[in-house]
């Protein structure tokens, strides 16, 4: 048996091993119900706009509280352990990464999908400029 065949064999086995072990790193977006089972998960949802948002940078610059409406319509409080992201209110969709603890989702990461200003199809007309 030639050496290159052995090598390819080893590589294929290594590939399969990596594939199997990496499948642990991958999962679907969870919802709050699944998050309740514990562990770090990613939850996708929308900002519950009728609920309060709290950001008090003077006292807790690293904490921003809001309510997230997950895919199943469950609304829970999220504490994002970061300053409030820019244009947060405009987000259409939010993905938070973190853990559910005592019915509060503690998020360490956030990704937002925003309607980009640079994408809109409206024609901006002169004269609506506001200045400082």
């Amino acid at each position: 048996m030639s050496r290159s065949l052995i090598i390819s064999f080893i590589l294929i086995i290594a590939g399969i091993a990596v594939f199997i072990s990496a499948s642990k790193d991958v999962s679907t977006y969870a919802n709050f119900k699944q998050a309740a089972q514990g562990g770090k998960v990613k939850i996708v949802g929308q900002l519950a706009k009728d609920m309060p948002m709290v950001y008090d940078p003077q006292n807790t610059p690293n904490e921003f509280e809001f309510f997230l409406n997950d895919d199943e319509g469950v609304v829970k409080k999220v504490i994002l352990h970061q300053p409030k992201p820019q244009d947060f209110e405009m987000s259409e969709q939010i993905v938070v990464t973190g853990e559910l603890k005592d019915d509060v989702f503690n998020a360490t990461e956030i990704l937002m999908k925003c309607p980009s200003k640079y994408k809109n199809e409206e024609i901006e007309v002169k004269g609506d400029v506001s200045s400082l």
């Binding site: 990596v18 990496a22 991958v26 679907t28």
Partner: peptide, 15 residues
């Protein structure tokens, strides 16, 4: 349902 990598940085660094 689409899959995502939970922690990309850790995932890539590991391998």
């Amino acid at each position: 349902e689409g899959r995502v990598i939970q922690d990309p940085v850790e995932h890539f660094n590991k391998y």
